[in-house]
Structures are given as structure tokens and as C-alpha cells.
Design a binder for these strands. Structure first.
Lengths: 148, 148
DNA sequence: ACATTAAACATAGGATGCTATTCAATGCCC
DNA sequence: GGGCATTGAATAGCATCCTATGTTTAATGT
């Protein structure tokens, strides 16, 4: 006997988009006083120990394409968040690292983001959040396989 | 006794973004031969019965801001997907409807999108998909409440 | 050593999304 | 009816993401 699934159950795609946008809007508005943005977090996290990485490494880490990372880094450089110095080993490349000011504000930024994630999952038990993440990891694996 | 949760469990936000982007990339590439795009689907769905709606109605339906919908409709008009005619009841507004060609291709487009959603949730049981959607609806309710 | 391939960036151009602002038409209130 | 708030769009400006393409430097193979 077939069950009556709603259209939404067959088309979960739009939910991912709406949630991603809403979390970015909320995160960006809360991070604005610190001078950060949601999209910058992977970069900040990758460099938080003071290390320096190439643009390509950061793009692979953040799972965005290289030109996207190039633009993001340009904005971050303009905002005084990162600094670039030529890579002595490879003249094609430069090494990106955080400025002192960015490193100082970073813990506050991460706290804001964590709180946003907590707010988003309010009312869900730890087990339910784990279930949600587990299902999303399987969906992501499907999509990665499709694009490979 | 505290459990050792990974950073990902505490920060599910990035998953939503990655899944949304991957689904949009895949959907767009598959819809391209039909002349459609993923972002257009809510508009196509709203107008599929031949009805005509104002830009504001479509923006609220698709859950995007009015200028976003204005640009989307401009591209769709340029692509011959929608048509605008002045609203006889309100001179500020125009009524948007689908062209014949778009209505003809619409069922094929919806099929492509449904298949994309099926591919994304491959390996998940119907019950698991329902669980995923249910959890996402609760997250979305949290976010809507935060922004209200 | 030199030609070829590969890797790292840069640039161009476009799609989606947002906020802030402005303009025009409508509606409402007294 | 006249003033005022509201509503529907348009515009400007920007952030994020993408694909496609070019340029420069490095690495490789013969």
C-alpha cells in the first residue's frame, strides 16, 4: 500500500537552500560587528594556529572553487583579516596568514558561530542533531560521487 | 558523562551550504538543455496552471527578497520563459505568467529535478528521508522565529 | 637541454542572493 | 479632499558562488 508522501518529502532540495541562506544571513548579521562573515570561517579556522597556506590549499579546505577563494581572500585582505607574502619555494604562489587583529577576534567569532548553530538546532536532542548530521553526510557522499 | 562530539556535530551549518550548492550545481547542469535553472523552479511551479501572479507574490512564494525575484524574472523574461502584462487593477504592478514554450517543457524539468532529489537521497530509506525532512522543518522553524 | 604536461593563480563574465534606498500608486483617516 | 502611511517595483551596490579561459612557473620525460 503506497503511502501519501507530500511533495516536500520528494523534493528536500529546497530545504537545504533555505536553511543555508537563513543561517548565513543570521551568522553574517551577528559577525558584522566583529568584521567577519560566515563564508570566511573555514579560512579563519584553517589559519587559526598562525600557519600560512596557499590559496589552493584554502580553496580545497573550504570546498569552494579556486576563483571563489581568490575573491574571498581579496575581500579579507581588504578588510585587514589576512595578509599575503610570496612563497619562497614557488614563485607562482603566495602564502596567506591571519593578521594579529584577526587572530585576536577569532575566538569571539567562533563563539558567535557556535551559538548560531545551537540556536538553529534548538529543541533538537543531541541524538537528533547527530542523526541529522549523519543523514547529511550520506547525502553529501551521494552528491560527491555524482560529481566525481 | 560527557560524550565526545566532533566539531561537525556542533557546527552542522556548513553541511547545509555544501549540500545546497552541490544540488544546485547538479540540477543546473541537468536543466541547462531545457533552458531552465534550479532557482526558477518555485516560479515555474507557482505558475504551472497558467495563472498569473505579481512579482511580490512570487517572491513570497519562493522565499526570496523582492529584488532577488525581480532579477530572476528579468532573466526568465530574457530567456522566453515568462511574460509580463500590466495589472489592470493596480498600475504599480504587472502580472507574470509562463509562456507556451515554458509550459510545454515544464513537466520534463520537474522530472529532472525529482530525479536529482532521488539521486541525492540514494541509499536512504523512505523513513530516513522523512526523518531528514522533519528535522529540517524544525530547524527552519527555529530560524524563521529568530528572524521574525 | 628542451619540449610537454601539470599546477597555481588571475581574469572575465554570469547567476543568485542580500540590504538599503527611492519612486509611484494605492488606501486610509479625519 | 488632503495628508500620510503602505505597498509594489525599480535601482544601486555588494557578497558568494560558479564555469571557462589565459598566464606564468614548476615538474617531467626523453
Amino acid at each position: 500500500m503506497p503511502v501519501d508522501f507530500t511533495a516536500e518529502t520528494h523534493m528536500p532540495g529546497h530545504y537545504f537552500s533555505r536553511i543555508a541562506r537563513a543561517m548565513a544571513r543570521i551568522g553574517d548579521s551577528r559577525l558584522k560587528p566583529l568584521g567577519f562573515a560566515t563564508a570566511q570561517l573555514p579560512v579563519l579556522t584553517a589559519l587559526r594556529d598562525g600557519s600560512a597556506r596557499s590559496q589552493g590549499e584554502l580553496a580545497r579546505w573550504a570546498k569552494v572553487e579556486q576563483p571563489t577563494m581568490a575573491q574571498l581572500l581579496a575581500r579579507m585582505e581588504r578588510g585587514g583579516i589576512v595578509r599575503r607574502e610570496p612563497d619562497p619555494r614557488d614563485r607562482r604562489s603566495s602564502l596567506v596568514s591571519l593578521t594579529e587583529e584577526a587572530r585576536a577576534k577569532l575566538p569571539a567569532g567562533r563563539k558567535v558561530l557556535e551559538e548560531g548553530n545551537r540556536d538553529a538546532t534548538a529543541g533538537l536532542s543531541e541524538a537528533e542533531v547527530a542523526t541529522l548530521v549523519g543523514l547529511m553526510q550520506r547525502v553529501l557522499a551521494n552528491l560527491d560521487a555524482l560529481e566525481a
